[in-house]
Computed example of a mutant assay.
Amino acid sequence: MAEENLTTATDFIILGFPEYPRLQIPFFLLFLMIYLIILMGNLTIIAVTYLDPHLHTPMYFFLCNLSFLDISSTSVTLPKLLDILLRKGQHISAVGCFTQMYFFISSLCVEHVLLTVMAYDRYVAICHPLRYAAIMNPKVCVLMVAGTWIFGFLEILAHTVLISRFYFCGSNEINHFFCDLSALLKLSCTSTFTVESMIFIVGIFIAIPCLISTLTSYIYIISSILRIRSTEGRRKAFSTCSSHLTVVILFYGSVIGLYLRPSSMQSMNQNKIIAVLYNVLIPMFNPLIYSLNNKAVKEALGKDIGVTGGSQGR
């Protein structure tokens, strides 16, 4: 009888935020506004970098990839959430659910490696400025970014295939605002040991080395900055990496808070709050962080706006 109750999933129900029934429309308006800010902010970064020749450098090439990644990752989850909040469109097919999970987790994997690459770029720029152009030449930058995207999307493929073969019994309700991996594992009747072991291996051999590499780069960066004698020189050097360091702290802080907490301390409601931070708020703040702390971006943005305004006036 137990085996008869085991079936492969055909669809799921994403609950969203059912604990706040009276706030569904306010939540819809809030997340719609955030999504529009994410799109406009990150598209602005990409457009300004493309239009201004002074920003055609490795640092801004990597930043454009981060902006595109932020647009992609939020576009995987937020449109469905908006549908849930506005029209109660909670049903999602199993294929759609696994696809959403795959692209979202892949974007996290890409971001881990991309932030590491960006930290290495700042390390070379600050610690080896005379060799920067030779080390970070266009061919190397393209290969690094291509490898980052390919690696990130291949890394989680085996996890997704395994989960798609799981059996699910009882409720098909996902207590989250998207098809989160942890929420799907809670619904499974199949042993999750293999998938959880693979996640642990990925964390040990990929995520943690990325974090250590990033921190090591910044240890060398800060050490080099402190050896600069002039105050103005230290300020300029730190301004080139402070934005990225802020993003790294926000990203790793939220991801570690979600995945490295003991399971006894976790709840799906807490996980949803942390997921809102790294899936919604950080992509919204990234363009602000990079533009407000970056003089070159602000000057390029002001120049482009001025040119646009002047041409419209004529």
Results as ranks from 00 to 15, higher is better:
residue 116 T to K: 09
residue 203 G to W: 06
residue 26 P to G: 08
residue 57 T to A: 02
residue 309 G to L: 14
residue 263 S to M: 08
residue 259 Y to F: 11
residue 174 I to H: 06
residue 139 K to E: 04
residue 302 G to D: 04
residue 67 S to F: 04
residue 60 Y to L: 00
residue 281 L to N: 00
residue 80 K to P: 01
residue 290 Y to F: 11
residue 11 D to L: 07
residue 306 G to Q: 06
residue 303 K to F: 11
residue 15 L to Q: 08
residue 217 S to I: 01
residue 60 Y to Q: 00
residue 34 I to P: 03
residue 258 L to F: 11
residue 248 V to D: 01
residue 146 A to R: 08
residue 257 G to T: 14
residue 178 F to M: 00
residue 271 N to F: 02
residue 77 T to M: 08
residue 97 C to L: 03
residue 301 L to H: 09
residue 179 C to T: 07
residue 118 M to S: 11
residue 252 Y to P: 06
residue 228 I to Y: 13
residue 313 G to L: 07
residue 124 V to F: 00
residue 293 N to H: 07
residue 252 Y to G: 08
residue 311 S to F: 06
residue 11 D to V: 04
residue 123 Y to P: 00
residue 297 V to D: 03
residue 19 E to M: 01
residue 226 L to D: 12
residue 20 Y to W: 14
residue 283 P to L: 09
residue 167 Y to Q: 09
residue 300 A to K: 03
residue 9 A to G: 05
residue 154 L to Y: 12
residue 242 S to E: 05
residue 174 I to P: 05
residue 312 Q to S: 05
residue 83 D to V: 08
residue 81 L to F: 07
residue 193 F to A: 08
residue 254 S to N: 11
residue 189 C to L: 02
residue 134 A to M: 11
residue 101 M to Q: 09
residue 246 T to Q: 10
residue 46 I to C: 12
residue 234 R to I: 05
residue 99 T to E: 08
residue 258 L to D: 14
residue 224 S to F: 06
residue 128 H to V: 01
residue 223 S to H: 13
residue 302 G to V: 04
residue 176 H to Y: 15
residue 164 S to C: 06
residue 268 M to R: 04
residue 171 S to T: 15
residue 228 I to A: 12
residue 170 G to R: 03
residue 96 G to K: 03
residue 111 E to P: 12
residue 113 V to A: 15
residue 224 S to N: 15
residue 229 R to V: 10
residue 229 R to E: 14
residue 44 T to C: 10
residue 172 N to I: 05
residue 160 T to Q: 00
residue 238 F to P: 08
residue 294 N to H: 01
residue 49 T to D: 10
residue 172 N to Y: 04
residue 235 R to V: 09
residue 274 I to T: 12
residue 194 T to P: 01
residue 302 G to K: 07
residue 301 L to I: 11
residue 232 E to Q: 10
residue 155 E to H: 13
residue 255 V to Y: 15
residue 243 S to I: 10
residue 167 Y to E: 07
residue 296 A to D: 12
residue 80 K to I: 12
residue 126 I to N: 02
residue 170 G to Y: 06
residue 220 Y to E: 13
